[in-house]
């Protein structure tokens, strides 16, 4: 009985809720445009902030630029075109993803070159070591010292 009562109450509440509740409207109607604005503003830097993306910044300029991006997105411009538009005005500084060009080759490929170099160096080193090197993990002298110290610890 109690259960039925509760179910009925819940249903009534839901009905009431449905009568009262309005769908929250998206802030901007065009979902695809908004997704593009979001995607772009997450990769672009707010110029007046210390170090924030356009998406995260509350500064006025960031707001204006987001609006500008929105206007361009509505016009149907591509990500590349919109980014270019901003780079023309503010320089590469606005891009958190630095463009690939002569001055950034090292930035983009440096880590992987380093990884490759490290890997090769490691392999050569391991091979050389496997052939030579002393066979005892600790030298006799060292082992004696360790034991002496361990005995002393108290």
């Amino acid at each position: 009985m109690k259960l039925i009562f509760r179910v009925v109450t819940v249903c009534c509440l839901m009905l009431i809720a449905n009568v009262w509740a309005d769908e929250a409207r998206p802030l901007h109607d065009d979902v695809a445009v908004e997704a593009q604005v979001r995607r772009l503003s997450e990769e672009l830097r707010c110029l007046v902030c210390q170090n924030q993306t356009l998406a995260d910044s509350h500064s006025e300029l960031a707001e204006d630029l987001r609006q500008e991006i929105r206007v361009m997105a509505i016009k149907g411009m591509s990500d590349q075109q919109i980014t270019d538009y901003l780079v023309e005005r503010y320089g590469d500084f606005v891009r958190y993803r630095p463009p690939l060009k002569s001055t950034t080759l090292l930035l983009w490929f440096g880590p992987f070159a380093l990884l490759l170099g490290g890997g090769i160096g490691l392999f050569l080193m391991l091979r050389r070591r496997a052939k030579s090197a002393e066979n005892s993990p600790l030298s006799a002298d060292e082992a004696r010292k360790v034991n002496a110290l361990l005995n002393k610890e108290s």
Partner: peptide, 11 residues
């Protein structure tokens, strides 16, 4: 003197 860039999360 090779210009200003930003290196951020996407990188």
């Amino acid at each position: 003197g090779l210009g200003k860039i930003s290196v951020g999360p996407p990188y």
